[in-house]
Amino acid sequence: MADTAVHAAHDVGHGAHVTSTGLSNNKLAMWLFLGSECLLFGGLISTYMLYRGRVANGPHPNQIYDIPFTSVSSFVLLMSSLTMVLAVSAAQRRNDQQTNLWLTVTALLGATFVGGQVYEFTAFYREGLGFTTSLFSSSFYTLTGFHGVHVTVGVIMLLVTRSIIQKNRVTGDKAESVEIVGLYWHFVDVVWIIIFTLVYLIPA
């Protein structure tokens, strides 16, 4: 979603951006955005930590969490980070076919993760944990739901990147575009590791 630098408008594809810091504008912007996102998730995680024991008459976290399942889904997301790395390296080698392949694999893994979350939410709902049941439920769904939306957006970004590479419609440096999507993807992944540890593993 980033524009190319004004100076380098005609250098599309060469990646020859002359910037004061030497970092590309797009990457710097993505890092700043992710810094901001850290505080977003920080706020949501704090809310969850404050409210996780307040279950009113609904289920208690210990009753419903399915740790083996969540461990697998965390593993899936971790694997998708690996394939994302492969996609970035393929893009840097200017191997479009492999880039697209790994982007697709990453997206598919991400999509199964989202599917797992849909499953988890449905199961929890059946077990009596509605969105409005208790403070625990509201903050749990909001936190993990926000993360789920981030993953979904990430998958869409991956698939669209794949399509625009295929149709040759990348406006900037191709490798850098893939790398920036990758940054986002790794961030979402890291956040999940934190959520998995704080929400699921540390007993409430």
Partner: peptide, 15 residues
């Protein structure tokens, strides 16, 4: 809370 009935600031729930 306002649009979807979440409980974040509902004191009766212990908020």
């Amino acid at each position: 809370q306002r649009s979807f009935g979440a409980t974040f600031f509902d004191v009766a729930q212990g908020a």
